[in-house]
Simulated assay, not measured.
Amino acid sequence: MYELKERDKIIVFTGPDGSGRKSVAEAVGQTFGMEKVISYVTRPPRPGEVNGQDYHFITHEDYREMDDQGGFLESVEIDGDFYGIRSLDIEEKLNQHDSVYLILNHQGASILKSIYSDKVIRLFLYADRRTVEDREQKLGLPADVIIKHLSHYDLEMSYRNACEHSFENYDLGQTTYEITNTLERYLQRDLVDKD
Rank of each mutant, 00 (worst) to 15 (best):
Q107E: 11
S114F: 00
M34V: 04
A143F: 02
Y101E: 04
D193L: 09
D128M: 14
S166P: 00
K5D: 09
L172I: 15
G18F: 01
D62R: 06
N161V: 01
I147W: 04
H97T: 11
G29S: 09
S19I: 03
R130E: 15
Y170M: 05
L172Y: 13
L88T: 11
Y40W: 07
R160V: 00
E168R: 07
D118E: 15
K5M: 13
G108R: 10
T175L: 08
K119M: 07
I111N: 09
E3T: 15
Q107W: 14
P44W: 00
P16E: 01
I78E: 11
F124S: 00
D171V: 11
I147F: 09
G29W: 11
K93M: 06
D98S: 12
Y101F: 15
L94M: 05
V76M: 02
S75Q: 08
Y55F: 13
V12C: 04
A127H: 07
E184C: 08
M157P: 05
K113A: 07
D89A: 11
G71P: 13
P16K: 04
M66E: 09
H60Y: 06
V37H: 02
E3C: 10
S166T: 04
M157W: 04
Q174T: 08
L125F: 05
Y116T: 00
S39T: 05
Q69G: 05
H106I: 07
I11V: 12
D134A: 15
R46L: 11
D17G: 02
V50G: 00
Y170Q: 10
K9D: 09
K119G: 03
M66I: 13
E156G: 02
